[in-house]
Simulated scan of single mutants.
Amino acid sequence: MKIMVLGSSGNIGNYLSNYLKKQHQVIALDKDNLDITDKDLVLQQVQSYSPDVVIQAAGLSDIDFCENHETESYTVNTLGTLNVAYACNSLSIPIVYISSAYVYGGEKHSPYFETDKCTPINIYGKSKLAAEKLIRTICSKYFIIRTSWCFGGNDCYIKKALSQSNTPIFLISNAVINPTYIEDLCSSVSQIIASDFYGVYNCVNEGAVSKVDVIKYVFEYFNLQKNVLPLATEAITNIAPRPSYTAMNTCLLYNCFNIKMPSWQDSVKNYLGTISIK
């Protein structure tokens, strides 16, 4: 299969490109190779390469940057994705869109289903949901993959936490989420694109947990004595609001593709087994 991966310099896009290269021909394009806000150029490039599927992993993912740069966020995340969706639909090519748990609003206290109402509370989530809606409006062949707090790859919050000194670590928000091992995400995407079961899917590791407890779990694994403290978003200015609960249910992923996501604890252990600390 010939797969075009957009956003190949980002953490997920880069990992996806390398993962899929093992079995497929991958066309990896980053923002220097393709400006997704240029509609004509996007159509030209997709037409030129003629891939079997396009994975749209390009965009702005810094939550706080998006909050303070609303126009740019919608231009890249929403209109940029619209351009990719338009090209894919015009050429009858399936699009895979990497979306986010932040499309959910956090008002629930049980895991979100794909059919639950989405009421994002920050600009990042709103720009991602707007992109989802455009894809669903104009495309007949699409996979929207909602994932959350990915770890692994080059830009990893677990690595960053381990690299810090013995001073206490402060994490913005004690929100309940599903951590997601990027290896598990990529494995799921590789299975999903082999099908034509188009739709919206939650793709995260099993188990709801606070961000603080994930990092505590990592430190306990290595027997490190470090304080990990939650920091309320209200205590800091220029910080985007975070939903308090965005855990997701993955039954649909299992029912449609027989993909059983591992627990976050097992996946964190698997990941930690691949890295070393000083």
Rank of each mutant, 00 (worst) to 15 (best):
M4G: 00
S8T: 03
S8M: 08
G10W: 14
G13Q: 00
Y19H: 10
K22H: 08
Q23T: 14
H24M: 03
H24I: 04
Q25C: 02
I27M: 08
L29I: 07
N33K: 15
L34K: 12
T37K: 03
D38N: 15
D38R: 11
D40L: 10
Q44M: 12
V46T: 10
S48T: 13
V53P: 00
V54G: 09
A57K: 03
A57C: 11
L60E: 14
L60D: 09
D64E: 09
F65A: 04
E67N: 12
E67F: 02
N68W: 04
V76K: 09
G80W: 03
L82Q: 14
A87W: 12
N89T: 06
S90Q: 15
S90G: 04
L91N: 09
V96F: 12
I98H: 11
I98E: 07
H109W: 08
E114N: 01
T115G: 03
D116V: 01
D116K: 01
K117E: 11
P120E: 07
N122R: 03
G125R: 09
K128D: 08
A130S: 15
A131N: 05
E132Q: 15
K133A: 14
L134V: 11
S140V: 01
S140W: 02
S140N: 12
S140F: 05
Y142N: 04
I145T: 05
R146A: 00
T147I: 04
W149T: 09
C150Y: 05
L162F: 00
Q164M: 12
Q164L: 15
N166G: 13
P168T: 13
I169Q: 03
F170P: 00
L171P: 01
N174R: 08
I177N: 06
I177F: 13
I177V: 13
N178I: 02
Y181K: 03
Y181L: 07
I182V: 14
S187T: 11
S188R: 08
V189Q: 06
A194V: 07
S195C: 05
Y198A: 02
G199D: 04
V204M: 07
V204P: 00
N205V: 03
G207S: 11
A208N: 13
V209L: 12
V212N: 13
D213H: 07
D213M: 04
I215V: 14
F219I: 08
F219K: 04
Y221D: 05
N223V: 11
L231Q: 13
A240G: 00
R242M: 14
R242G: 01
R242W: 12
S244R: 10
S244E: 09
S244W: 05
A247T: 06
A247S: 13
A247M: 05
T250I: 09
C251L: 12
L252T: 07
N255Y: 08
N255P: 03
F257K: 06
F257Y: 15
M261I: 07
S267F: 02
Y271S: 02
L272I: 03
G273A: 10
T274I: 09
